[in-house]
Design a protein around this nucleic acid. Structure first.
Lengths: 197, 197
DNA sequence: ATAGGCGAGGTCAGCGGCTGACATCGAGCG
DNA sequence: CGCTCGATGTCAGCCGCTGACCTCGCCTAT
């Protein structure tokens, strides 16, 4: 057993707590160290002191371990959009969801950068990211519909909002960028308004 | 050998022409008949009168066979956007690309519906579709940049355009819908303008 | 206290997607 | 006629992922 492994399960027995968390940590570390393709699930499990089979009990596939937070994130945004004043326009309610998102990311910039460095060089992972974003878009559209917005207005507004997030996020993680995510998103939203006309 | 197989390689020797096309046809047919997950690559190859190894020489993976047209489509849209009058706004150039797309799809509605029926029930295939759409968005953004549009305006405009296409496409393939795709897209674009304000 | 439930984890076998290495076929060309 | 060359075939093997079944040890009810 390598020295690195010890940091993960020194003295851990079969029932050491938080196996799921250990798997997530081991996976991200290995993906960063050697790349996603060069990491096998057996290696992740070994570093976490578990077996390959157990990895698949916690995560549906090798990619999903990087997208665990998506559900929480979605709930955060949906709640924010739903909590917007009744008089708020669809776009304003969506902007409220973006604000909640920005707040969350700005506190976790290091993690976001690490994670992004893995995803940005792997098409399979980009695919997974895109479908999470699409499901998020659909959730926001559903929230807007509950607020009385019709179709296709609800879907188009949600897509515009997530589109602004996506473009802003790319700028936020670009080397040399110092502005905060919510500032970039606000700027992006204004730019979108200017260009759609 | 089944009767169905004969339709694909009746009398075909090793060098019968258009192996690639036969693989694509066999794949779509099988995906429609039994579903994507229930179809093995070996079965596709067998129906096309080839071997599994040959399938992977033509297509990078089992999903890619459904997305062969993406490059052509991208070229079509990029050309249309680049050919827009110099005086056209970014959004107008993007709308020209959408027009080209609409024309193409309206002539192939049966194929589009068949293909969509397979993709719509399979998350893996949706992931692939989304990344193709994202690459298409990036290509249009690049074209807009060549037309002198800055960032983030170029990316935001391209995303809005593809967003309109995506929403409109969903409506176009919905049961009971009778309008043409380009009509739906024009309507979507107006709706987007109304909601972004 | 102890039996048994039960949930987290382990073991084993196997399928199918995908790849590298190497052999073979057949068309066209000198 | 023999050669080259691109398309295909053959074979072996890794790894992602799954089903079926077993084991461990905590918790609770009696």
């Amino acid at each position: 057993m390598s020295a690195a492994d010890l940091a993960y399960h020194r003295g851990m027995g079969r029932w050491e707590p938080n196996g799921r968390g250990r798997l997530a940590q081991a996976a991200l570390d290995l993906y960063v160290e050697r790349g996603f393709d060069q990491t096998t699930v057996a290696e992740i499990a070994e570093r976490a002191g578990l077996t390959e089979r157990t990895f698949f009990r916690h995560y549906a596939d090798k990619r999903e371990v990087l997208f665990d937070g998506a559900a929480t994130l979605q709930q955060l945004m949906v709640d924010a959009a739903a909590a917007a004043p009744e008089a708020a326009s669809p776009l304003e309610a969506t902007a409220a969801a973006l604000d909640a998102l920005g707040e969350m990311f700005d506190g976790r910039r290091d993690f976001a950068l690490r994670r992004h460095s893995v995803i940005s060089v792997n098409p399979e992972l980009q695919e997974r990211e895109l479908i999470k974003l699409a499901r998020l878009t659909e959730a926001i559209a559903a929230t807007l519909r509950e607020r009385g917005v019709g179709e296709p207005a609800a879907s188009l507004t949600a897509q515009a909002g997530i589109g602004v997030f996506h473009v802003s996020f790319q700028r936020w993680v670009a080397p040399g960028e110092t502005r905060k995510l919510d500032e970039l998103m606000r700027e992006g939203l204004e730019e979108l308004k200017a260009v759609i006309r």
